[in-house]
Design a protein around this nucleic acid. Structure first.
Lengths: 332, 332
DNA sequence: TTGAAAGCGCTAACAT
DNA sequence: ATGTTAGCGCTTTCAA
């Protein structure tokens, strides 16, 4: 149906090895023949079968990217960074979505391995490195993105969550806030831990003793922030600064505060984390910690390209920790 | 490095043809041998090379999905619908992102074809079917998603934009609005046309003569909606209902109105299109037309699976037009 | 029930 | 400069 290299060779009246050479720009083909072959190939709308090439070359010029949630405000821009970088280098990206589901993540990893991708970038939900790495050939380049499991010797790229939380809370303190509360979620234990650490660190630096009563955990949703802050305010407690573990929660917090008649930021300052696109909207104007999502993707892809270019024995484990950025808007 | 079928055969002391049969559950292998082979394969962590299988079977159990913008509020959920459906049927999905760029779209299509995907789902930015279809083997299943080029004989799934716009504007009229304005963008000419048609239709049904002065075009951004509505109001014009071509514009419109001291919805009702997640946020509460994004993806994938199961000569062109839904919130 | 061998489309080593 | 051929990992006849 679709023409193969042999069809082109037949039409050109020449051996198909020569056609292969001409098509791949190798030496040892006369200029004349090369042009003729190229012309005929174009005429026939010939496209090389990457599957067959991959079988011979043991490389498919393809990498897999596994992310937990394509519909989140976070991962798509990361994916874009990966894709742009890999595309520039001549690779295609095979994107898989795991729905925060470890079983589905494993299935994706298997599928990608079966499809002979040259490397895998993964934002894993696994807690232990073994869970993901045991299903991977040891020679397969693997880069973790934004989160990484315990006990891995592989490279990763992530954002400094401790620093980000520290920046957020230090900012609240610099605004004269002293009664500061953390509202977060256990949904992503890994980043929670780091952000809590940054929270405590900033408090101590500001001369405030961190206490567990300052920490409230719910879910990663707007509602959750809304009801938690309302519970706090209705109990008579009067915080003057809120650090929310992400922007969704922060938005709920702002609404919850305003709905009870308090003012943001005059009475209570609020700051979130992530800098999702809503945060900058005119009616929202949420202060937050910006995650360089696109750059996370790019950095991971660059590490991947390095591994791809080297033999597995020459890999160096790279840990790239990107700095987040404080974005001050109207809520603090 | 990674074990092949021959390694398994050698270890089992049996020909690799038999191993192939055993692994694929074919007849003609004794139960005893089969179990032994399966056990050894598992022990060796053998995984079949899908590339090699694809070469023989002429099927890679993989489809390509080409979308213009992975970071938009629209496409990721569509992609999720596609992915879930294809995964259930044993296919993997190769996702590509074109950045609304026709050249990049063509490059994606080429890449996918070279990688021998079994079919392609595409939300194309091409105006003419030839542009995308001429680079595709005629036997390659192709389904258009959410938009489709002129002159195609292929199947597509889309939302009824005329109906959606009609619903939106009829709703404004039912709220007693008579001085209604359309604010949109030329960025996506195809959907613009349909939504304008629905706009005019609803006006006529409501006994209002549509005029070109009711139509204002800018860009698909919040800013654009903001400045357009402010221009209108500052000129002294006093519309009482606004239909924005998408939610981003609508949000800008709401802000623009409020910043000039008018009330939404008391003075002016506003309705958008798409139902992006922000629209339902507590502080936004935008009335809008909901697009069944996930179902669009599912429907397209279902058509794809049908084509995949049939010979190209038995394909039937399917046009699935999904109905949008009116969502009334606080802005109208 | 099992094995031998051809062949999928291609690249690369070896001949000519 | 060009042709011949082996072989990548696998499935599938055809023979035994």
């Amino acid at each position: 149906m679709t023409p193969t290299i042999k069809d082109v060779a037949r039409r050109a009246g020449i051996s198909y090895a020569t056609v292969s050479r001409a098509l791949n720009g190798k030496y040892g083909v006369s200029e004349e023949t090369r042009e003729k072959i190229l012309r005929i190939a174009r005429e026939m709308n010939y496209r090389p079968n990457a599957i067959a090439q991959g079988l011979v070359n043991r490389s498919t010029k393809t990498v897999g990217l596994v992310i937990p949630d394509i519909t989140s405000p976070f991962f798509p821009r990361v994916a874009l960074g990966v894709e742009d970088t890999m595309l520039e280098a001549g690779y295609s990206v095979f994107l898989c979505n795991t729905n925060w589901n470890l079983e589905r993540e494993k299935a994706c990893l298997d599928q990608l391995a079966r499809n002979q991708v040259d490397g895998i970038l993964v934002s894993s939900v696994a807690a232990q490195a073994r869970e993901v790495e045991k299903r991977m050939a040891p020679g397969m380049p693997l880069v973790y993105l934004s989160s990484y499991p315990e006990g891995t010797a592989r490279s990763y790229v992530r954002v400094d969550n401790v620093l980000g939380a520290d920046m957020a809370v230090s900012h609240l303190i610099s605004r004269g806030r002293r009664k500061i509360i953390f509202i977060g979620s256990v949904q992503e234990p890994y980043s929670l831990e780091d952000r809590l650490e940054g929270f405590r660190k900033a408090l101590q630096n500001g001369g405030i003793a961190p206490r567990d009563t300052m920490i409230h955990l719910g879910e990663f949703r707007e509602d959750s922030g809304y009801s938690i802050i309302q519970g706090i305010l209705k109990s008579g407690e009067r915080p003057d600064g809120i650090f929310a573990e992400n922007d969704l929660i922060a938005m709920g917090v702002v609404s919850g505060i305003r709905d009870l008649g308090f003012r943001v930021p005059e009475d209570i300052s609020v700051i979130g984390f992530d800098d999702i696109s809503i945060a900058s909207y005119r009616d929202v104007q949420l202060s937050t910690i910006h995650q360089p999502r696109y750059r996370i993707g790019r950095a991971a892809a660059e590490i991947m390209l390095e591994q791809l270019a080297r033999d597995a024995r020459e890999w160096t484990t790279q840990h790239k920790v990107l700095e987040p950025e404080l974005v001050i808007r109207g809520s603090s």
